[in-house]
Amino acid sequence: MELYFLGTNAGIPTLHRNVTSVALRLFEERRSLWLFDCGEGTQHQILKSSLKLSKLEHIYITHLHGDHVFGLPGLLSSRGAQGITAPLTVYGPPGIQAFIQTSLELSQSRVPYELNIVEHTGGVVFEDDGFRVEAAKLEHRAECYGYRVIEKDLPGSLDLKRLETYGLKPGPLYGRLKRGESVELEGGGWVHPADVLLTPKKGRVVTILGDTRPCAGVHQLAKGADLLVHEATFSAELTELANEYYHSTAEQAAKAAAEAGVQELILTHFSSRYKDMEHLQPLLEEAQQIFPNTKLAEDFGLYPVQRRCSAGGNP
């Protein structure tokens, strides 16, 4: 599980940063890719990356401001032009369906794959055997939601020493036990998964917020997360401006991370006044004074989601 940033700027693109979009790479977990927001130029950023639209399974939209959705019609159309037939689901606030359908109809774009559009107002928006995605309302000028991606706990590894005591050798029976099935021994008797599986691995939690100023929804989504992606449009000296425009400062993002007990914080959605990474260093420093494990998001930056260590030191 890894985050790959395709755009980290607020409002408009610059020479160094595109507008908002971040991909959650789930190649090992489900051989797919999820996208969070899709600002103008996102498909161009994907072309410059190792990401493939054929792997794209879900798109989660936080709100309908242009720097978060103007790339969506083009990406959906290009996906069809590439001959991709796998289904795709777009989740977003009320209005996302009208935006997509109107854009595609008026531009006479072909979408030769199953396109599902799910409008929501928070709560659990997706769940299957491996993941659950929750949404909660944030405080912004437009109706805006953040997302909490919860990886469900994974079965523990097989205890090879215990397996040896039962006379079991590597093969199909290992796989059955790993899947939670009991197996019958050749000499009689049964081996159950609980007999040979180590402690389950705790699933990871990734919180990706849309635009917001400090509010209760931030804490609800971020509580105990392994990784929090939080906007930091301005530095602390511009707190009043941030509040006026319903945005956050780097300092406020760090406070949110500390209060929620997250493991790692990544700042993104930077104002164009901070022209490059050098100009963003003061934002990083003010955040790290409060929450040391903070990083700045960079376009085309890859950030693994680390699994918390257990009490015994094992992930």
Score class of each variant (00 low, 15 high):
70 F>N: 15
72 L>E: 05
73 P>M: 09
73 P>Q: 13
74 G>R: 08
75 L>P: 05
77 S>T: 14
79 R>P: 06
79 R>S: 05
80 G>E: 06
82 Q>M: 14
84 I>C: 06
85 T>M: 05
86 A>D: 10
86 A>E: 14
86 A>W: 00
89 T>Q: 03
92 G>T: 00
92 G>C: 06
93 P>Q: 04
93 P>T: 01
96 I>R: 10
96 I>K: 04
99 F>Q: 10
99 F>P: 00
102 T>C: 01
105 E>H: 04
107 S>I: 02
108 Q>H: 09
108 Q>V: 03
110 R>L: 11
111 V>I: 13
113 Y>L: 12
118 V>P: 01
120 H>P: 05
123 G>T: 09
123 G>L: 07
124 V>D: 06
124 V>Y: 03
127 E>V: 05
130 G>W: 12
130 G>K: 15
135 A>P: 10
137 K>E: 15
137 K>C: 07
138 L>M: 11
141 R>D: 14
142 A>Q: 15
143 E>L: 08
146 G>K: 04
149 V>C: 06
150 I>F: 09
150 I>G: 05
151 E>V: 09
152 K>C: 13
152 K>M: 07
152 K>W: 07
153 D>H: 15
153 D>I: 13
154 L>V: 13
155 P>Y: 11
156 G>N: 13
156 G>E: 12
156 G>H: 07
157 S>T: 11
159 D>G: 11
160 L>H: 10
